[in-house]
């Protein structure tokens, strides 16, 4: 499954980011952010291109990529779901949002976070700053708050319908 989600990296894209952002060592984080915002994760090929075409070393690229929680080294589904696990969301039931979404997406393996059909990836984030509407999640760019597990499923189904994705269970 993960193979089919592997992104094809365009050399021109990476070069244009280097041109826009810079090739010195302080550009490491923004360059990786540009890569990830395009592909959803950091494809090996893109990191290699950065190493070959800038002053940034391999150990710096990998050091940074593994240090910050924002960066992902594994391919992701076509859409991201970010479930907030900040304090307010934790005490108001963030776990239930995870449970209900994993259920509807039929992700049963605890190690996995992407649905078998490559539609959605569930990511846990620290806080998105809408704490008084906890628990909160973000599907693609859309924030929804004051959710129950069933509401979360409803929000996902709505998004899936609009984007012609199939969600598995229920």
């Amino acid at each position: 499954m993960s193979q089919s989600l592997e992104a094809k990296v365009e050399f021109e894209d990476v070069l244009s980011w280097i041109k826009r952002i810079g090739s010195d060592s302080s550009s490491t984080v923004p360059l990786l952010q540009a890569v990830q915002s395009k592909y959803g994760y950091l494809p090996r090929a893109a990191m290699d291109m950065i190493i070959q075409n800038t002053d940034i070393t391999g150990s710096q690229v990998y050091g940074v990529a593994t240090f910050y929680s924002q960066f992902r080294l594994k391919p992701v589904g076509r859409h991201m779901i970010r479930v907030c696990h900040g304090t307010a969301c934790h005490v108001t039931g963030a776990d239930r949002l995870d449970t209900s979404l994993r259920h509807i997406l039929n992700i049963t393996d605890e190690e996995q976070d992407t649905a078998e059909n490559g539609s959605y990836t569930i990511e846990q984030v620290a806080c998105i700053g809408c704490c008084s509407q906890a628990p909160v999640l973000v599907i693609a760019d859309e924030v929804s708050g004051n959710l129950t597990g069933a509401n979360a499923q409803r929000a996902l189904k709505k998004h899936a319908k609009k984007n012609e994705e199939i969600v598995a269970n229920i």
Binding site: H85, G86, T87, C89, A126, C127, G129, C130, C131, S132
Partner: peptide
Amino acid sequence: EGDPGAFMDR
């Protein structure tokens, strides 16, 4: 704004 549960600065 690292405190996960705060949004003054946002």
